[in-house]
Amino acid sequence: MEEKAIRVENVHKSYSSTVALDGISFEVSKGSIHGFLGPNGAGKSTTMKIITNELTLCSGEIFVNSERPIGFLPEIPPLYKHMVVEEFLLFVKNIFESQVDLSGILSKCGIDNVKGRLIGNLSKGYQQRVGIAQALIVDPEIIILDEPTVGLDPHAIKEIRELILSLKNDHTILFSTHQLYEASNLCDEVTIINNGKILKTGKIEDVKRDLVTGEIFLIELDTKLSDKDCKECEQEFNIEIIRNEKELRITSKGNEDLRGKINRFLLDRDYIVSSLKIEEMDLEQIFEQVTSEKNV
């Protein structure tokens, strides 16, 4: 059985009358990058703050399988803007009584060249790197990053993603995002949360397999599909068709493979199908589907 770094069991958290977390449970495997997905206000930050002991929970249990402190980068990096980068990291190192090598962290995070500069004078991308460095300087086994790429330019986002990937070898990483492209590319495991409830958790392939009901076909015709035929086809096969000139984007709702039947339907009505291919549903579509279903 795979060793777990974090186990969250039936955790409830309420702020006066607002329920932030409604009995959430999930596990983070040791050595994995675990994506924590959800829209704004879903409960991602609250969960992370509870794991790092910044917030108390109302009920439930959290197991953290590590003797070392957790490295945590909150949504707003905790930085003293009037301090010099190196001095700040040294301060964090001292208050966490860490023995880690400061120069190693500086070069790992790519902030060697700005170590003598005031944090307040750095760009947002560099401030985020210093934020990640303060999470690493505590010598953690587990790192929690709350939306580490939010508000950064595309170049900085790419660099931060590469940095996260480079940390994978020595650490377990739990990071929240609502950029699903990011999660699909970086994560081994995902947990989808909405309105304080876990919608799905597990290995990324398993989550995709479990949640994908139906398929998406892309069909190209020789002529434009008429309104009458479109309506007929939708009713007959219980599908949804989006037309774009001669192209059709068909979403089936069941598990039955309808490719042959739809092809026959179109040929019977004198359409020539010049191409038919299946589009794999990505995490973004799954996420949209799952969160909208649960919201209803």
Binding site: T52, E54, P69, P74, I76, P78, L79, Y80, F96
Partner: peptide, 13 residues
């Protein structure tokens, strides 16, 4: 405001 209080509170101080 800067979140550094939470950093201090998480530390061993």
């Amino acid at each position: 405001r800067c979140g550094t209080l939470d950093l201090l509170m998480r530390s061993k101080v």
